[in-house]
Every structure is written in structure tokens, then in C-alpha cells.
């Protein structure tokens, strides 16, 4: 599934898996992939957001949703990494992003999928996709990112 990815793209996917573990999610979703991509400085510059900001915005979305049910989020005093990497499967949204990234790479006659291709594929997602929701919450406009990415 992850063949034809550059080492940097593989690193972003692995970082996404770690982000899912940190949050305690059972599956790796597009939101985790976005966080994973933001570990890459070039990608963070294109998006205009760093990984810490995105992570805390995602936490804030959770807290807001819980508050709507009248539940106050406890302070656990720092995240605990949850293991069991091999059992974590990608969501259907994540799986849909990969072939699109392959197509984008092929259109540019690139032999391998770079983090930039993964990001551009993620930007095509519409809400309620988790990555699209997170980008909207961060007030990041996909069109702006696409324009910046086209110049590089």
C-alpha cells in the first residue's frame, strides 16, 4: 500500500500513525495524516500552521463536542502514548487519499509520491472529513495552500 512513497512521505505516514496513538484512536484517519505531514517543515510552511497548533486545535474540537453534551474534559496532565501499532488500520478516508496522491504524482511525471502530493490529495477532502474539518477549524483555505504549493 505504501510502495512508491519517498522516504519523507513514509516518515509523514509513520508520524501520522504516532499521532493516532497519542490521541488514543483505533484507526489512522486523514486528520492524523495531516498532523503527520505537519511534522515536515516544508509542509508546515505551505499550510501555514505548525503541528503543535494543529494538535491543540484538534483537542479543542473534542473539548467543544464534549461540552455540548455537558461533559467537561479532565486534565490528564500530558498525553500517554498508546502502543499496538500493528493493529491500527487506516480509515476509508485515508485509503481514498493514497490513490489520489499517486495520480497527482503521475500527472507531474514524478516517479514517487512526496509529502506535497499527499497534502494536495488531502486538500481535496470535503467536510465532514476529519482533515477538512481540522483545516476549517484552523481557518486554512485549501485554495491558498494549493496556490503556495503550485509555486514550489
Amino acid at each position: 500500500m505504501f510502495d512508491r512513497l519517498t522516504p519523507a512521505a513514509r516518515a509523514a505516514v509513520a508520524a501520522g500513525d504516532d499521532e493516532a496513538a497519542l490521541r488514543g484512536d483505533r484507526r489512522v484517519g486523514t486528520d492524523h495524516l495531516l498532523l503527520g505531514l505537519l511534522h515536515d517543515r516544508e509542509i508546515a510552511d505551505l499550510v501555514g500552521v505548525d503541528v503543535e497548533t494543529a494538535r491543540s486545535r484538534l483537542r479543542a474540537l473534542d473539548e467543544t463536542a464534549l461540552a455540548a453534551l455537558g461533559i467537561t474534559s479532565p486534565d490528564l496532565g500530558g498525553a500517554v502514548a498508546i502502543s499496538r501499532r500493528s493493529a491500527r488500520q487506516p480509515t476509508s478516508g485515508f485509503r481514498a487519499v493514497l490513490p489520489l496522491a499517486y495520480t497527482l504524482a503521475a500527472n507531474e511525471r514524478a516517479r514517487r509520491v512526496t509529502p506535497r502530493h499527499l497534502l494536495l490529495a488531502l486538500l481535496t477532502r470535503d467536510e465532514p472529513d476529519p482533515a477538512a474539518t481540522l483545516l476549517a477549524a484552523l481557518e486554512v483555505r485549501p485554495a491558498d495552500v494549493r496556490a503556495r504549493a503550485a509555486r514550489t
Binding site: G24, D25, L61, D62, A65, L66, I71, S73, P74
Partner: peptide
């Protein structure tokens, strides 16, 4: 999202 957040919290 709240359901997911509860699961993550657990």
C-alpha cells in the same frame, strides 16, 4: 465527535 472524544478519553 463527542463519541470519538469519549473513546479517546477512555
Amino acid at each position: 465527535r463527542a463519541v470519538g472524544a469519549l473513546r479517546r478519553l477512555a
